[in-house]
Structures are given as C-alpha cells and as structure tokens.
Simulated scan of single mutants.
Amino acid sequence: MTKFLLVLHVLAAIVAVGPVTVAASMFPPSARRALADPGDPRASETVRLLHRICRVYAGLGIAVPVLGLATALSMGVLGDAWLIVSIALTGLAAAVLLALVLPRQEELLEAAETASETAEAAAPSGTTEVAANPRATAQLAMFTGIFNLLWATVTILMIVRPGSTTGA
C-alpha cells in the first residue's frame, strides 16, 4: 500500500504542481505583452488561459499533500524533521500561491482585459493602476519565483530526506 500511495503522491505532484509552476512562470511576461499591446487579442487570451491553468491546477494540487500525508503515515515517518520541514514549506508555498500569486494574476488579467476593451473602443489608454504600474509584473514574477523555489526545495527534501534511514 505504501508504494501505491507514493506513486499516487508523485504523480499528483507532477500532474498538479508542474503545470502551476510553468504557467505561473509564463504569466508575467505574457501579461507584459498583453498590457504593451492591448490590441492583440491573442496576448490577452494567453494571459487568461495561463491564469485559468494556475487556478484549476492549484485546486487539484490539494491532492499532493493529502497523498503525501497518507504516504508518510504508511511509512511511519510523520515525526521526521525532513517531513515536518517539507510540510511547512508546502504550506508556505500554498500561501504564496493563494495570497500573492493568484490575486496579482487576477489584477493583471483585469488590467489586460480593460486595456483590450479600451483599445477596441479606440479610446486613450490609462486603464488601471496595475497597467500604469510596470512593477506589478516584476513583483508577480518575484512571488512566482518564491513559489517555485519553495516547491523545488520540497522536491529536494522528498528525494534526499536528510536524517532518514532511507535517505541518500
């Protein structure tokens, strides 16, 4: 049963967390393009799609810690330091995604859509505070990088498992 749970945990991490990390990383430059060229419908469609991927797969990502805890319980390692640190980092990564990445993506998506509507109406630009603030995409890129770094650290801890009897 442990091997089965471990396989499900790893597959869930690959299928759920992988797309979020990639789509979230692609979002800031795509948002910059959409804001720079509001007349390009493909640019704003790309931003919308990337945000949707992030939202949907973030929801699916809840399976990763649930299966991870079931696997840890099955392996009898719930009290190991590497697992406790991994759980804390996973919680922190989820908080960064939910509190910092997704809300800023929504703001930039709204700004891109507003800019696109303004361009269609051939009115002057000056859409929103977010569009006027070029630091918004840079800040989002930073938060996305933190999210990705936290997940990379969790992955390393899961592979190396320092202090465990099965670690490398």
Rank of each mutant, 00 (worst) to 15 (best):
A12R: 02
L5A: 00
V20K: 07
L157G: 00
G76Y: 10
R33I: 07
T71E: 11
F147V: 00
L73N: 12
V10F: 09
N148L: 06
M26V: 05
G39K: 12
L73P: 14
K3D: 15
I84Y: 06
P124D: 09
T166Q: 13
A119E: 03
V154T: 02
A34N: 03
A43V: 02
A31N: 07
I87R: 07
E45R: 07
V160E: 01
I14W: 02
W82S: 11
P29H: 03
A119L: 05
G126Y: 02
G39Q: 11
L157P: 00
E117Q: 13
T90G: 15
A152M: 11
A138G: 15
I53F: 02
I87W: 13
I14L: 14
R42N: 14
A99T: 05
A111V: 07
G76M: 08
I62M: 12
S86K: 02
S164F: 08
A136H: 05
E107F: 01
A168W: 15
S25V: 12
S164Q: 09
R55Y: 09
T90Y: 10
L5F: 08
A121W: 06
R135N: 11
A58R: 06
T21E: 09
Q105K: 05
G163H: 05
W82P: 09
A94V: 14
R42I: 11
G91H: 09
D80T: 11
A121C: 05
L98G: 03
I14Y: 03
L140I: 03
T21S: 15
Q105R: 03
L78T: 15
D40C: 10
A63T: 12
P134H: 00
L73Q: 12
E106L: 15
G163Q: 09
G59Y: 01
D37P: 05
T71D: 12
L8N: 01
A16D: 12
V101T: 00
G79H: 14
A132R: 02
M75K: 14
E129Q: 08
V64C: 01
Q105T: 03
A136C: 06
A12T: 10
V20M: 07
G167I: 11
S25N: 15
V20H: 09
L89E: 04
A131P: 06
S116F: 08
G79M: 14
E113Y: 10
H9Y: 05
K3E: 15
P28F: 02
P124Y: 09
L73S: 15
G68A: 03
H9D: 00
G145Y: 04
G167N: 12
K3A: 14
A168T: 14
H51T: 11
P134C: 01
L98N: 07
N133R: 07
L89C: 04
L149S: 09
R33V: 11
G39F: 07
A131Y: 01
T144A: 04
N148F: 02
V56A: 12
